[in-house]
Amino acid sequence: MNIIVSSIDFILNWGRSNSLWPFTFATSCCGIEMMQTSASNFDIARFGSEVFRASPRQADLLICAGTITHKMAPALLKLYKQMPEPKYVIAMGACACGGGMFADDSYSVVKGIDKIIPVDIYLPMCPPKPEALLDAIMKLQKNIRKESFLDRDKFVSAHCSRLKEREDILVIDNDIQVTYWGVNGND
């Protein structure tokens, strides 16, 4: 039984890790570095992920490149939910990781996208070099090769244990409420 599971895991993880199709989602200056990564000098196509899909239904990897404001939070959450499993998230840049320079006294910025969606890889710096993004993708590939298809649900539930859904509210966290028109409460 273990042999069957591990061999299925090997094939699935090999396929998934080698064809991470990113989703075109760039909200600010880190997006420029993401574009640079797919350009000639640091060719993201070498890892098989130059297929930037515009539709979330066909993407596997959400590279959240840039600041997420309270206005953008419901859109990010909706797009994440529209992606089919298996889906992975890279938080690119300090703003996406934990608010960056807006972390202390901004009234309009979500302090880290991990308050809204589960994150697989954090990539700080302001902004990271294109090589750093390639490094993050390689680390994500390493993580995918280690995981088992039986444990994927556990990862999501462990990261979204506090998430609930109501009709008017998309996410209720400890200190953040994402509604359809923005974010309620002081986070």
């Binding site: 990781c97 954090y122 710096m125």
Partner: peptide, 12 residues
Amino acid sequence: NYETAVASKSLL
């Protein structure tokens, strides 16, 4: 050093 990607937020 610019290769700062980590898998957990506590490592930041």
